[in-house]
């Protein structure tokens, strides 16, 4: 029993330690206030779509092919991808957007 608890704690810790940089960015820009993101604590926002299966998602914002480059561009400047998008421009830098996109495309399968 104790061993199981220990394994669980270790697993959670490992989970938190993966992509610390990306996780810090996701937390700083408050992505979860609008989107559900697996293993990221927050209010499970439902203003935007869930980001639970990003690698399998065919389109970004329902308009452009889902590639790391397009996703990063959308995060950095949503209206460049879809002028009508309700996703706000949060002032994410290109480099930060690249890190967040990589993180999102690595989760959920």
């Amino acid at each position: 029993m104790r061993l199981q608890a220990l394994t669980l704690v270790l697993a959670l810790a490992a989970c938190d330690e993966a992509d610390p940089e990306a996780r810090a960015l996701v937390a700083r820009y408050g992505c979860v206030s609008c989107h559900e993101i697996p293993n990221v604590p927050g209010p499970r926002g439902n203003s935007g779509p869930p980001l639970t299966h990003m690698p399998r998602q065919v389109y970004v914002a329902g308009v452009a092919p889902n590639t790391p480059e397009v996703l990063a561009r959308f995060i950095a400047d949503p209206q460049a991808i879809d002028p009508r998008s309700a996703m706000p421009d949060l002032g994410v830098s290109a480099e930060e957007a690249r890190i967040i996109a990589g993180f999102l495309l690595g989760i959920g399968g």
């Binding site: 935007g48 779509p49 389109y59 329902g62 879809d82 009508r84 309700a86």
Partner: peptide, 21 residues
């Protein structure tokens, strides 16, 4: 079980935006 061409519609009725716009 794994089509994500458009978003899953289980919570579409509760989302703040339709099609993100």
């Amino acid at each position: 079980p794994d089509v994500f061409v458009g978003p899953p519609l289980d919570e579409a009725g509760g989302r703040a935006y339709i099609a993100g716009v």
